[in-house]
Design a protein around this nucleic acid. Structure first.
Lengths: 234, 234
DNA sequence: TAGTGGTCTAGACCACCCC
DNA sequence: GGGTGGTCTAGACCACTAA
């Protein structure tokens, strides 16, 4: 008897292809047989083989080109997938208590570095919000955010006292594209006070720039205390 | 005239569905029509509609359940995808010169914390390799790695003088699963010397534990100087 | 220019799971 | 129980690109 959850169909083919790669039947750089041949071997149709190979290519194991065929990648271009963290949920998932506090909200002309970063017109107005997120009363994240008023006019009416700008933006402008980056930085003395650490201490910085089509919507810096980790499997 | 690269087929359907979500035709929490209805509306087959919706669900926009149908997610579970960096390529892609230098290589009993982390037997032996990666002669990354000898016996014959353990492992044990995590840390005085920064300075730490089926293969800590960034779009 | 993957059609059976 | 998505079949035309 085999495993009761033994896959069949395109899943079985994916598994078999991976097995053959592990066993060296198809080693890095080598070409696999064409879809038609594989379909015959696995006693199925080309459609099913196609789905299996397409997904393996998407996952970074194979390279597929018309006419050239399907090849095993020499260096698998594996990729990790991170769920974009939703701060409140992230904290409550750990069983901790979440609390939000707005620090400040001002409306101002976009500073030069921001206009430049977001390709804003010279005269752009932005809403600058600073806020703290606590887990069980402990400082967890300091949020420093700029919202482009022209892209999200509804923001003018928002105080962000009760709801954090992240959650509000997800509800208001849900379908955006973004660029995110992670880095390590030193906290400034101001941020240090809010995170309750010493100035100059390391912080994990998460930055995100969000666009709605071609218009910049918001730029945010999220500072986390040393010890914060982003983790994923792949 | 429309855009010359106007998508057709399942891509067109994906785009149209996203457009309708943006326009509020299908707002968060709402159910979409069934695949059969959509196929009729778009004058295509259910297969094509299925692929469009399946991909949108994979990308985190929709939730699909048998019998329940397809719903627009209230909070899109969008996910970012990071290419797993290959240090040499990453550096050379910037036009910089890459240089590798092994710092040390020892064979030892696995320390307790490592055995625990990797679920190793009491008596496990590991190879401990430390190495530096330079970009244009500047310190770029300090690598602190443990390789489980039992999982990769070939490593016993490797000096890692000419080739870094990362590259060697990718060639030798290409099909692994891994857990990675990012964090900010303080460099110890020893790491500080190699990175040519001051002890206690912030560093960006990338950790990865790698498994081949159920056996731990390697655990590595990669330290980067302040200023290093991991970036992606989604 | 010919071979390969990319995609679509039209139809079918089935597993899951909400009602 | 029945409606919905998950998947497969068998076949076709087409786009791309390596040879």
């Amino acid at each position: 008897m085999t495993n009761p959850t033994e896959p069949t169909g395109y899943r079985a083919i994916k598994a078999e292809v991976l097995t053959r790669m592990r066993n060296g039947v198809w080693s890095p750089g080598m070409s696999l047989p064409g879809e038609v041949d594989l379909a015959e071997e696995f006693a199925t149709t080309r459609t099913t083989v196609n789905r299996a190979l397409r997904e393996l290519a998407e996952e970074g194991y194979l390279e597929r080109k018309r006419k050239a065929g399907t090849k095993v990648l020499k260096m698998p271009r594996r990729q990790a997938r991170f769920a974009i963290p939703q701060i409140q949920q992230e904290i409550e998932d750990t069983g901790a208590d979440y609390r939000y506090a707005r620090v400040s909200r001002t409306e101002e002309d976009a500073p030069g570095w921001l206009s430049s970063k977001l390709s804003l017109p010279q005269t752009a107005r932005v809403i600058h919000v600073r806020a703290m997120h606590y887990a069980n009363g402990q400082p967890h994240q300091f949020e420093d955010r700029w919202i482009v008023t022209a892209s999200v006019p509804e923001a003018a009416a928002e105080t962000f006292v009760d709801q954090g700008p992240s959650a509000w933006l997800v509800d208001t402008v849900p379908l955006t594209t973004a660029e995110i980056s992670f880095s390590a930085t030193r906290v400034t003395s101001e941020v240090a006070e809010f995170l309750e650490v010493a100035p100059g201490d390391p912080a994990f910085l998460f930055e995100r720039t969000t666009w709605l089509d071609a218009d910049a919507v918001t730029y945010v810096r999220l500072y986390h205390r040393e010890g914060y980790r982003m983790t994923t499997r792949y």
